[in-house]
Write a protein that binds this DNA or RNA. Structure first.
Lengths: 234, 234
DNA sequence: GCGCCGCCCTTTGCATGCAATTTGCAGGAA
DNA sequence: TTCCTGCAAATTGCATGCAAAGGGCGGCGC
């Protein structure tokens, strides 16, 4: 019954999917990077077929751009897509808060609390810190037991990482740890309104504080779109 | 330059995807139906590879269940998943309403109005009627220009159709046409609160009025889970 | 020198083939 | 009869092969 570690879940295509996703979220593969099927397959020891399957899934999640006959690249959302994404995310996480407020079990509270401690501890390591911050949100979502909600929160959180990679200010702490703790306190107390407001603020601050574009490496689409309109090229 | 009608979009795999999706939403393929790769491929004139790709996409959208080594079936959500789905959908459509309220252009208003007229006209044809009702919601989402929101609304609306197919009362008009018209009026007038309330009511009425299970063909998982717990089988 | 055109190489699009797993069924033992 | 066992057909998992589209580069014309 010894099963290879790599193929837990449904076959190796999922393993490939996870590997790529991880690489993207860790910014080992940065937005815009090319993702050729055969080099990936070679590196991971699988055929193009499986890589393809993984890429299709990633493109469905919005982490990868898949252009016909031109291959896959790590997604490079525009700034406006980023803002819209955070809007959507706020709507979803608002539901998470409503669902959970005043209904957390002792065990869940412990899990969340421990996680926040871990965030605190890892504050030095930038990459770790970002991932943990995201995981706090997915962890909350998980506790709703609402499958579609969980999926969408996972996706939006993942894509948010991409956005921050592209447009985030280098040294802003994207998710203040203290805000996570405050949020948890409100959730425990069942103060739904307060908790919701905090969540809104929490995410809003990311878009306004951390998301303002660094002028130099802005997405070319953003830069050109204004000129295109001016020239009537739409 | 004569391009086959079927392959607009990215290659034939998308055509397959659309065909299957359509078939599922039209209930030509009902929940639980097996979807063997080769018979589908044969019927549609493509190889298993492409069918596979389409099935992966459908499974990401939650319209198809993909079980390892056991193949694909049309998804058969449980009643609880259904209720949760509608919760998520409400959160998303609430954002749609907020975004659009008071901001509809003349052209958009005409489009929506025309659509509602079409719904009215098609009231006799049950299948048509259901599809049009769904399309009203996706049409609204489309107008937000928020890509992620659009995607999620599309998905939830599609899955809602599945839910209604499984658990909907036969003759309830799932989406009262008059409610659509009222909603539009409030959106035009910019009465955000009113519009949001109406949308909530609109969707809520589906879950409470139309969604109560017909005892006989309930999902076997639902039926058995209670017994499983009772027997300590979890 | 500069720019355009066409060729070649790389990479994708898709089909097919083979191994592995599952399911249905038949036959035999209790 | 009923249950178990093992074979066989059907179906999935995955790799590879071939055709075609795209992109880069060198040569040719201006």
């Amino acid at each position: 019954m010894t099963r290879k570690i790599a193929d837990s879940g449904r076959g190796r295509s999922h393993a490939v999917h996870r590997a790529l996703k991880r690489a993207i979220l860790d910014q080992a593969l940065s937005p815009g990077a090319k993702l050729p099927e055969d080099s990936i397959g070679e590196r991971l020891g699988v055929s193009r077929t499986l890589v393809r399957e993984a890429l299709v899934r990633l493109s469905e999640e919005g982490l990868v751009d898949l252009r016909p006959n031109k291959g896959a690249t790590v997604a490079r959302p525009t700034l406006e897509e980023g803002r819209n994404l955070f809007l959507t995310r706020m709507a979803l996480e608002h539901l998470v808060v409503e669902t959970l407020s005043g209904k957390l079990t002792r065990e869940q509270i412990d899990t969340l609390s421990a996680h926040i401690d871990a965030e605190d501890a890892a504050r030095a390591e930038h990459a770790q810190s970002i991932r943990l911050a995201g995981e706090f949100h997915t962890l909350l979502a998980q506790m709703t037991n609402n499958a579609s909600l969980i999926r969408y929160v996972n996706e939006t959180v993942a894509r948010s990482s991409l956005i921050l990679a592209l447009y985030g200010r280098p040294h802003s702490s994207e998710c203040a740890v203290s805000e996570h703790r405050d949020l948890l306190d409100h959730l425990i107390a069942g103060k739904t309104g307060e908790a919701a407001k905090l969540m809104t603020h929490h995410l809003d601050s990311v878009t306004t504080r951390a998301l303002l574009p660094k002028e130099d490496d802005r997405n070319i689409k953003d830069v050109l779109s204004a000129y295109a309109v001016a020239e009537g090229l739409v």
